[in-house]
Design a protein around this nucleic acid. Sequence first.
DNA 1: GGCGTAACGGTTGAG
DNA 2: AACTCAACCGTTACG
Length: 392
Amino acid sequence: MEPAFGEVNQLGGVFVNGRPLPNAIRLRIVELAQLGIRPCDISRQLRVSHGCVSKILARYNETGSILPGAIGGSKPRVTTPTVVKHIRTYKQRDPGIFAWEIRDRLLADGVCDKYNVPSVSSISRILRNKIGNLSQQSHYESYKQHQPPPQPALPYNHIYSYPSPIAAAGAKVPTPPGVPAIPSTMAMPRTWPSSHSVTDILGIRSITDQVSDTSPYPSPKVEEWSSLGRNSFPPAAQHAVNGLEKSSLEQEAKYSQVIWMAPHSNPICETCLLLATCFHGQNTVPCPPTHMASGHSTRMKLIKKVREAPNGLPAVSSFVSAPAMPPYATPAQVSPYMTYSAAPSSYMASHGWQHAGGTPLSPHGCDIPASLAFKGMQTAREGSHSVTASAL
DNA sequence: GGCGTAACGGTTGAG
DNA sequence: AACTCAACCGTTACG
């Protein structure tokens, strides 16, 4: 049972023990680091422990992914039916064969690679337990032959580094009536590794491509950005996201979406948005004059600015006032799931970055599309003019 | 003071 | 269906 509320760390930040930080926060950690902000300052600004900041940045630098690793599940066995079958064949052809010879042959024949080849002791066990009595084994094998072919050698946890989450989402979660399907540009599978920049990870173009300056409704991308805030959920949404169960998450996401619609008709402090430090209650109040005075801008201004950028790839740094540190809200009053459940189900539907058959919904509903969560998306996003997943 | 990381208590999900 | 257990998580504390 998931806790209804998270815990509060020494910095006052809210977290859920055992669960990853929302991708939006992970993203912002990387973003701020690329702006030259020191990890210790990122830690303080975002109220995430420096250990976590360090880990996320180290992972990002190493792999290019901001995403957490795959949680749960079991490591695939190396002694797949195919491997056992080959071992039996070797043994039948050469009853005196040694286990280490079998191991070498599995490698030489390409049945296994060095990462998944069974150990000599495993082969010995197989010979003893499975090959020893072929009459019993044949029944098992005839059954197994009707099963799907075993997966080729892949490192465990490989899948979370090669996400195609939107496509998976589209397959898992039906599009509600009246809600346009996710465009193929969003569903495009990504390959890994790829060369990406944080600017595109942030999905700035996604936002600007969508939002009309006069539109009273935000794109889902804007909601996503807005969900970066830790204290931005109105109290009315609490019952919808507390006590959450997987079976009702999609409904809750929709409910959260309703809550999130109206506020964005007003300009939002861009700095607050980016730094996720204050959201002025329900996002319906523009930034206080003090914020403007300290260099903050509004979302509307941000959007205009981005649109004026010649190549459509504005520097994030031009929009962030790093030294400005707006005050934080009282974190103890905030459910982390308030923060984590703001995305509409129509596009945030799956942790496809994890296991392919994983949980379609997670409490961390503000997850950015994982396909965007990699270094640089220039090529992947070419011609991606519309990423609309509509408001209800 | 900043940072890397082991220990810790926790969650997850395939088998 | 319940259980196992090895993967992961973020925080904390230590060096």
